[in-house]
């Protein structure tokens, strides 16, 4: 077990109506590491991510069982502010969704929702975030142009910067590179490797190779069940479960 668990899932199940998605998952997620969640389609990988910042609340007829602890505190406790939770646990989606605003306004969106952040603080926060997301050099001259005019790869990195501007403790990424070219993918991965020094990162990679490139730990989900998890090295070289072996060697999935 990792020494400092940032997030703990205790017997977590999630249902869409009567349809079970995630089933009895218990998992500890360490701080300052990258956890890659792999598995074939329909394994509830995205559901697992969305549970961690309670975006799953938005699912109509969604129902959660079990407990999710962030720093030892149940995120569903009534005294937990869901909006504050989401600034502590940021998420980047598979398809980049820039808001119909300028690049600057997109990145500053989260911090601006809180009160009392000055324009100059925002300016430096925007620059810092865009630099950390490895996209500053490409957009610094057009910060006030629409974010939607950027290329897909740039949009995705701006969306990453938008999450970084929240100064989150945990970053969730749901196949963030699925639509990106290899160069943009490499830039995002490099950014993540730097970010993990002071963040807890959970990523659903778009393929097993990406999991092996950047994952410190790997969790293998199948049909909503956690088949196994462990260090990337262990899972990829000595998987304990034959299904994991089949999946990572490409026999299915």
């Amino acid at each position: 077990m990792p020494p400092t668990a940032k997030i703990v899932l205790e017997d977590v199940s999630f249902y869409y109506g009567q349809e079970p998605a995630l089933q009895h998952v218990s998992l500890e997620i360490a701080d300052k590491e990258i956890l890659a969640i792999i598995g074939p389609g329909m394994s509830a990988k995205s559901t697992l991510l969305r549970i961690l910042n309670r975006l799953s609340d938005l699912a109509t007829e969604g129902r959660l069982e079990g407990r999710v602890l962030l720093d030892g505190k149940d995120i569903h406790d009534p005294d937990v502010s869901v909006t504050q939770l989401r600034t502590r646990v940021g998420v980047v989606f598979a398809v980049p969704v820039p808001l119909p605003l300028s690049i600057w306004d997109n990145v500053a969106y989260g911090p601006q929702l809180r009160r009392g952040v000055s324009k100059s603080e925002l300016d430096s926060l925007v620059e810092k975030s865009l630099r950390a997301a490895a996209v500053w050099d490409e957009v610094e001259d057009r910060l006030h142009e629409p974010a939607m005019a950027l290329s897909g790869g740039q949009q995705q990195r701006v969306c990453l910067a938008r999450v970084l501007a929240l100064e989150p403790e945990v970053i969730l990424l749901d196949e963030p590179c699925s639509g990106l070219d290899p160069i943009s993918t490499m830039k995002v991965e490099e950014a993540l490797l730097t970010l993990k020094k002071d963040h807890c990162i959970v990523i659903v990679p778009h393929n097993v190779q990406q999991a092996s490139r950047i994952g410190d730990r790997v969790a293998f989900l199948m049909g909503g069940e956690l088949v196994e998890h462990g260090s990337a090295e262990q899972v990829f070289t000595k998987p304990r479960d034959s299904r994991t072996d089949d999946y990572i060697t490409g026999r299915f999935g």
Partner: peptide, 8 residues
């Protein structure tokens, strides 16, 4: 969803 995910 993006607004919610950014704490809005």
């Amino acid at each position: 969803i993006v607004n919610a995910s950014l704490g809005g």
